[in-house]
């Protein structure tokens, strides 16, 4: 039982990290950024490229090196997110939401198959692998590396939450989420704040990408598709636009999948997890922590 919980929480923390970017962007400009999962993929490949450029890494120094790569990747994917917003979404700011949605799908394909042109269709394998000393905690097997990854995810999410709730920047974001036009009248540079939101969300997705690459080892150009959908689901379950809700949604989806597999078998897992999603949408369309009228970021 504890093993199931741990499996769920571990996978869920990845979902949560990716879902945050979805949620933030939706909160501010009501855009479902379907290319978000591909920024996760971009992060995994960026980390791969940096590690490749750095040459061989001894396994004793693996963790600090990976953390450095993680930070570098976050900056790069963050900037990629800013460019994506500038090129693909900003010109459509006033357009109907459907156009934005289609553009997002297009951007997603462009990133996927662009990466295929650059890196090839073959899956790549990370040169540094987080193997693991196994610990037994309450009957569940977990590794130090898993704990480290979850800790990194928690730190990143806590940092984001502080930024949004306690800083001027965060206040500007929340203001735009409430009313972009009035915010502009109040002297907030709306475009700049939206750019920075994309930077933050994309950086988190990139971080998740590097962590997945280092832990699971295999990366490929389509790896962002499924997790993008899962992250979207997590965001909806938790309350899209709401940061703590999104984190909760990610963890909950991980747990749902873990227990769904256990109770009903592998082929029913997604039926179970997405069935819950549909239930949520009918019973509580705003999600767990979403409120009907809320400050969304």
């Amino acid at each position: 039982m504890t093993q199931l919980v741990w499996n769920g929480l571990f996978v869920g923390s990845f979902y949560a990290l990716v879902a945050l970017g979805y949620s933030m962007v939706y909160g501010i400009i009501k855009l479902l950024n379907f290319a978000h999962g591909d920024l996760y993929m971009l992060g995994a490949f960026t980390g791969f490229a940096i590690l490749g450029a750095a040459g061989g890494v001894s396994s004793s120094a693996a963790l600090p090196v990976l953390l450095a790569v993680l930070l570098a990747t976050m900056v790069i994917t963050g900037l990629a997110g800013v460019v994506l917003e500038r090129v693909a979404y900003r010109p459509l700011r006033g357009a109907p939401r459907l156009s934005l949605l289609i553009t997002a799908v297009g951007a997603s394909f462009a990133l996927e198959y662009g990466m295929r042109v650059v890196a090839g269709a073959d899956p790549r394998v990370y040169p540094v692998r987080l193997g693991g000393t196994t610990l037994e905690v309450f009957g569940a097997r977990l590794t130090v590396q898993q704990l480290t990854l979850v800790a990194v995810a928690v730190v990143l999410m806590a940092g984001l939450n502080l930024l949004v709730t306690r800083t001027r920047e965060g206040r500007a974001m929340r203001a735009i989420a409430l009313d972009p036009r009035t915010s502009a009248l109040m002297g907030i540079d709306v475009n700049a704040v939206i750019s920075r939101t994309f930077f933050l969300g994309s950086a988190l997705a990139g971080a998740a990408g590097v962590m997945a690459g280092a832990y699971y080892g295999k990366i490929d150009f389509l790896m962002g598709f499924l997790i993008g959908l899962k992250a979207f689901t997590a965001a909806v379950i938790g309350g899209i636009g709401n940061i703590p809700g999104t984190m909760l949604g990610g963890l909950l989806l991980g747990l749902l999948e873990s227990f769904g597999t256990f109770w009903l078998g592998g082929e029913w897992r997604d039926v179970f997890a997405f069935g819950v999603l549909i239930l949520f949408l009918t019973v509580r369309p705003t999600g767990l922590l979403g409120e009907r009228v809320t400050e969304r970021v």
Partner: peptide, 17 residues
């Protein structure tokens, strides 16, 4: 007989099963 979802990274739930 355990079915998994292809194209994912984490199969720990299936493996626990």
């Amino acid at each position: 007989v355990e079915a998994v979802t292809p194209k994912e990274s984490d199969y720990s739930a299936n493996i626990t099963n």
